[in-house]
């Protein structure tokens, strides 16, 4: 067990070194992008929008924009790191070592969570330049941030396992993840939508992540927070098991 713990620490250290080595790709871009969201949606358009649940529009979008950065960073970190290791074949360094599958999964996921949390914290700090963000319940904020980063790190690992080229790395992120994020209530409350669209939106798991996270900031949510928490836990467990199974089978990494 000690051997597996050391291997896990080594993989996490390797991931952190990677994040810091290429900080202009891993930490800087989300800050620039999210700053543009604050300026365009918060300042320019937000000034025309009335308060939501008594909160200014600029403050309302802070949790969503932070969560968007967390999701993109966690996902991007794991998929690029794992596929990069496959592409350069240094994934073999792990496969020839006596590392358990769960150690490989946990190591990559931790890398994703760490980058997600660091970027999320930086974006939150940046939001202080645009508004005075409040935190209603820090524990809820942390639980949603960590679980969401974990879910998307696990999803990214599946993407990385199956990806055969760089196009397949980007497909999920561009064509599924981004639309789900934008339609997940980052910039609006679904209560402002017609009932049909409200019901349609409830099929989007991102809605529960964004709203649970927003609850941690303001104490209100469009959906049930316990249900959102349970959904995140179930998704984490299921995706974890899928990853373990894929690695045990050697799918995408062994001939």
């Amino acid at each position: 067990m000690k051997e597996q713990w050391i291997a896990f620490q080594t993989l996490v250290r390797k991931e952190i070194i990677r994040i810091l080595r290429i900080w202009t790709q891993t930490l800087l871009p989300p800050l620039v992008t999210q700053a543009l969201y604050f300026i365009i949606f918060g300042k320019f358009i937000g000034s025309q929008v009335k308060a939501i649940h008594g909160v200014s529009y600029m403050s309302f979008i802070v949790p969503g924009i932070v969560m968007m950065a967390v999701i993109n960073s966690a996902y991007g970190n794991v998929v690029s790191s794992f596929f990069g290791a496959k592409f350069q074949r240094n994934i073999e360094e792990m496969l020839v070592a006596p590392m358990k599958e769960w150690v490989i999964v946990a190591g990559f996921i931790c890398g994703g969570i760490i980058r997600g949390l660091v970027v999320g914290a930086l974006v939150f700090l940046m939001s202080c330049f645009f508004t005075h963000p409040t935190v209603y319940q820090i524990s809820i904020v942390m639980v949603f941030m960590i679980l969401t980063a974990a879910v998307f790190s696990l999803a990214a690992l599946i993407n990385g396992i199956f990806a055969r080229n760089f196009d397949e790395v980007a497909i999920f992120q561009n064509f599924i993840l981004v639309p789900l994020i934008y339609l997940g209530g980052v910039f609006y409350s679904i209560l402002s939508l017609p009932p049909t669209w409200q019901n349609f939106s409830k099929l989007n798991p991102l809605l529960y992540m964004v709203n649970g996270f927003r609850y941690g900031f303001f104490g209100f949510s469009d959906v049930s927070v316990p249900f959102s928490t349970a959904l995140l836990i179930v998704l984490t467990v299921v995706l974890w098991q899928v990853n373990i199974w894929l690695l045990k089978k050697g799918i995408g990494i062994k001939n």
């Binding site: 291997a7 620490q9 993989l11 070194i17 350069q88 240094n90 360094e93």
Partner: peptide, 20 residues
């Protein structure tokens, strides 16, 4: 089959870590 962007020392030390 090593990461071309890692340092020589890191590549060897990391492999040792993977072996526990």
């Amino acid at each position: 089959n090593f990461n071309m962007f890692e340092r020589v020392g890191d590549i060897v030390t990391i492999q040792a870590g993977f072996f526990g």
